[in-house]
Design a protein around this nucleic acid. Structure first.
Lengths: 135, 135
DNA sequence: CCGTATCCAAGGTGATACTG
DNA sequence: CAGTATCACCTTGGATACGG
């Protein structure tokens, strides 16, 4: 699905589809980077299944409403599958589809970058804020 | 900076720092996935420098205000450097620091995932929406 | 247990005009 | 040219209570 280079329009070459205002890949990227999406993917990595409450407990701070919304959105995009077991009490399981599983590596890399560099970044922020005091 | 496993608390093992409510890596991840951050990184990859207007033109749809805010935030985190040349007209150049350059690979992978799978996802969305019509 | 309904707060985002 | 100032929006996210 690579966009053919727009070399005939005379427009400057864009290095990526996503820079294009109308490219729908923007909405995909946005979804992938929704607040809770990377965490859901993290929990469901390696083929793990999880029930709603399990996700809610593991992903600290997420509200049921937003968790539902995010899961629905991911289900709509085909990233997660959902299975309802009509028992009492009811049981709903979530897991990653094949497509969803293919996001694990990219998202994990990003997450690990954040976890690995949070220390440096906090130092940078402090230094930056202090350098502003003198102005 | 890996968090020591909380195995002594009896709490369930979290597979990632970011799942922890108070872990500051959450804010780092949030910033990396800000609306325009991945695009700025894309444009400044491979050591490319760019002026403000150049960024604004390349990243279609970004407003000057938000572009400024995002660049400031990235500068504060130490991801981009900024050089002012006091000429007339003035000139300001931006480029990635070493730390910023280390985000290129993870973010590019994510971007490429979005661009590669936008087709499938749009189909999935359509199918999902249609399947809802029958209810 | 698994959500939905409701209401509300926050802030990210945007359009535009203007200035050094 | 490179922003800032201002205003407004409106989506995202959150708290809570309730329902199947």
């Amino acid at each position: 699905m690579a966009r053919p280079a727009q070399s005939m329009t005379g427009a400057p070459e864009l290095p990526a589809d996503v820079l294009n205002q109308d490219c729908p890949s923007r909405s995909v990227l946005r979804h992938l980077t929704d607040r809770w999406t990377p965490m859901i993917v993290t929990v469901l990595a390696d083929g793990r299944r999880a029930r709603f409450t399990e996700l809610r407990r593991t992903i600290q701070g997420v509200s049921p409403k937003v968790l539902t919304e995010t899961l629905r959105s991911m289900e709509r995009d085909g990233l997660v599958a959902r299975q309802v077991t009509a028992s009492i009490p009811p049981r709903v399981d979530y897991w990653l589809t094949e497509l969803g599983a293919s996001t694990v590596a990219p998202l994990a890399e990003l997450r690990r970058w954040a976890e690995a560099n949070v220390g440096v970044i906090e130092q940078n922020r402090q230094r930056y804020d202090e350098s502003l005091d003198g102005e």
